[in-house]
Design a binder for these strands. Structure first.
Lengths: 140, 140
DNA sequence: AAGAATCGTTGTATAGTGCAACAAAATTTC
DNA sequence: GAAATTTTGTTGCACTATACAACGATTCTT
């Protein structure tokens, strides 16, 4: 077994390499939905509607960035904004039907693309890898 | 053990979440070296010198992008280019002393930041996680 | 009621990226 | 061996993503 330091270096390098490639892959996988817009749409869907401020917080993005992305998504008809009845400053973002459809398609493509990389992995190895990643991500 | 599909979804989600935050974290970790420039410098160091085309291939970047990043790194004095004696079209990129120093510092900060997340992981789990990531990355 | 905080928009600037056109060198083809 | 093709890198151009700052509207705190 390699040393702990070496292993941590490997983890660091591999995760960074993945991050570097992620944008490119996302654009290939669903050209009409960038990594950012996909992630935003996915988040508001998962949350069942949320505010721009929540999105900004979650992705560590400036509110102006989110504002522009949301405007773009709205123009594409993928989400709509409703003024929050409890706080007229804010808006509740919700995916439209078209947004949900696109999101489902994108998720399907992503899943297929990921699955293809694991064809020669055993079920056990896939499960363990997922566990480790989840454990890692949970510490965020 | 969860189903294979579920595990793959987890892997997909966790890796994507990491990618979304990576740029921001990198800029916080070492403000003088972006995720891209850091990655490029790290790669040419690890390879003991390589060509711009290798960098582009490895990170799936356009050669023009790499060309500009390399120019920037050279202006900062972090790497130098040597014409490849065996092929005068190409250049061999090598980190300078200043580049190596900066890289060491950045790596130290990154390692510390990463290591902090593994304090409650056993050596064996860290090693296995590293193995899985390396195996995943190798299929690129 | 006054001041402070929050939410979102817009103006401005910058970095990162891809594509296309190009130049130089090497390789292949005839 | 000359011509065509491929490889390697640069530059011009366009566009996206991003942050920061200033702002207006609203809500919260005293």
């Amino acid at each position: 077994m390699p040393g702990r330091e070496t292993s941590i270096d490997t983890i660091q390098r591999e995760l960074t390499a993945f991050a570097r490639r992620a944008r490119h892959k996302a654009s290939q996988l669903h050209p009409d939905l960038s990594l950012v817009t996909y992630s935003i749409l996915d988040l508001i869907n998962e949350r069942g509607g949320c505010r721009a401020a929540d999105v900004a917080m979650h992705f560590m993005l400036d509110k102006s960035t989110v504002s522009r992305q949301v405007t773009a998504l709205e123009k594409l008809g993928l989400l709509r904004r409703e003024t929050d009845p409890d706080d007229q400053r804010g808006q509740i973002l919700r995916a439209t039907e078209a947004g949900l459809t696109l999101l489902r398609e994108a998720n399907e493509q992503r899943r297929a693309s990921f699955a293809a990389r694991f064809t020669d992995w055993s079920d056990q190895d896939v499960a363990r890898f997922a566990d480790y990643l989840a454990r890692y991500g949970a510490e965020d």
